[in-house]
Computed example of a mutant assay.
Amino acid sequence: MKQFIFSLTAIAGIISAPSFAQQNVGLPTVELKTGIYRIQAELADTPKARELGLMNRTSMPTNSGMLFIFEQKAGHCFWMNNTKIPLSIAFIADDGKIVNIEEMQAETTNNHCPKAAVRYALEMNKQWFSERVILPGTVIQGLPKK
């Protein structure tokens, strides 16, 4: 009997928890690569998608992230207002090289800015880059050209 109750509880938890895919309805994705790593990145390439970003999400799969694409190169800064999960952000030049990486705490309003004008920024789970020894100068392949 205990096994049956546990199974129902587990199923109820799975059904009631929104999946990552359900939270991201409508955003296209792209596969990015760096070394041996593959990243499934949602594209935030419109003003609305960039404004919402990863706000209000409670989790993100390990090799998933969000790629922000801007029309113009600039010092696009990010903050973590209404963002529930800590993130790392890599600011990326047009040639795919990472300019700098910042660690961002959840629910904060500190600005995190690139060290040079960029059009791309990739948000991943906190320490994703450092745990894989991905540093400034590393190339991210597969960036969509706009």
Score class of each variant (00 low, 15 high):
residue 3 Q to Y: 02
residue 5 I to D: 03
residue 9 T to H: 00
residue 12 A to I: 09
residue 12 A to H: 02
residue 13 G to E: 04
residue 13 G to Q: 01
residue 14 I to W: 07
residue 14 I to D: 09
residue 17 A to H: 09
residue 17 A to T: 15
residue 17 A to S: 13
residue 18 P to V: 03
residue 18 P to M: 08
residue 18 P to C: 09
residue 19 S to P: 12
residue 20 F to N: 12
residue 22 Q to N: 12
residue 23 Q to H: 00
residue 24 N to E: 11
residue 26 G to T: 07
residue 27 L to D: 06
residue 27 L to N: 10
residue 27 L to P: 05
residue 27 L to T: 08
residue 28 P to T: 10
residue 30 V to N: 08
residue 30 V to T: 15
residue 31 E to G: 05
residue 31 E to H: 10
residue 33 K to R: 09
residue 35 G to K: 01
residue 36 I to A: 15
residue 36 I to P: 15
residue 37 Y to E: 14
residue 37 Y to F: 15
residue 38 R to G: 12
residue 39 I to S: 11
residue 40 Q to A: 13
residue 41 A to P: 00
residue 41 A to V: 09
residue 41 A to N: 04
residue 43 L to I: 11
residue 45 D to V: 00
residue 46 T to E: 08
residue 46 T to I: 03
residue 47 P to N: 03
residue 47 P to L: 07
residue 48 K to V: 07
residue 49 A to H: 06
residue 50 R to A: 13
residue 50 R to M: 10
residue 52 L to H: 07
residue 53 G to F: 02
residue 54 L to T: 11
residue 54 L to C: 05
residue 54 L to E: 11
residue 56 N to E: 12
residue 56 N to Y: 06
residue 57 R to H: 14
residue 61 P to W: 03
residue 64 S to M: 06
residue 65 G to P: 10
residue 67 L to F: 07
residue 67 L to E: 12
residue 67 L to P: 12
residue 68 F to M: 05
residue 68 F to R: 08
residue 69 I to K: 14
residue 70 F to V: 11
residue 71 E to P: 13
residue 76 H to L: 01
residue 77 C to M: 09
residue 77 C to E: 08
residue 79 W to I: 05
residue 79 W to F: 07
residue 79 W to K: 07
residue 80 M to D: 06
residue 81 N to Y: 06
residue 81 N to S: 09
residue 84 K to Y: 08
residue 85 I to F: 05
residue 87 L to E: 08
residue 87 L to V: 09
residue 87 L to M: 06
residue 87 L to Q: 09
residue 88 S to P: 01
residue 92 I to D: 06
residue 93 A to S: 13
residue 96 G to D: 12
residue 96 G to F: 00
residue 96 G to H: 05
residue 98 I to W: 01
residue 100 N to T: 10
residue 101 I to Q: 04
residue 103 E to N: 12
residue 103 E to D: 14
residue 104 M to L: 06
residue 105 Q to R: 11
residue 106 A to Q: 08
residue 109 T to L: 04
residue 110 N to Y: 04
residue 111 N to A: 12
residue 114 P to R: 00
residue 114 P to C: 06
residue 115 K to D: 15
residue 116 A to P: 04
residue 117 A to K: 13
residue 123 E to F: 02
residue 124 M to R: 01
residue 124 M to P: 12
residue 124 M to A: 10
residue 124 M to C: 09
residue 125 N to W: 02
residue 127 Q to W: 04
residue 127 Q to L: 13
residue 128 W to S: 11
residue 128 W to P: 11
residue 130 S to T: 14
residue 131 E to D: 14
residue 133 V to K: 15
residue 133 V to T: 14
residue 134 I to Y: 08
residue 136 P to D: 13
residue 137 G to E: 10
residue 137 G to D: 10
residue 138 T to H: 02
residue 139 V to H: 03
residue 139 V to I: 14
residue 140 I to M: 02
residue 141 Q to C: 01
residue 142 G to D: 02
residue 143 L to R: 01
residue 145 K to W: 02
residue 146 K to P: 08
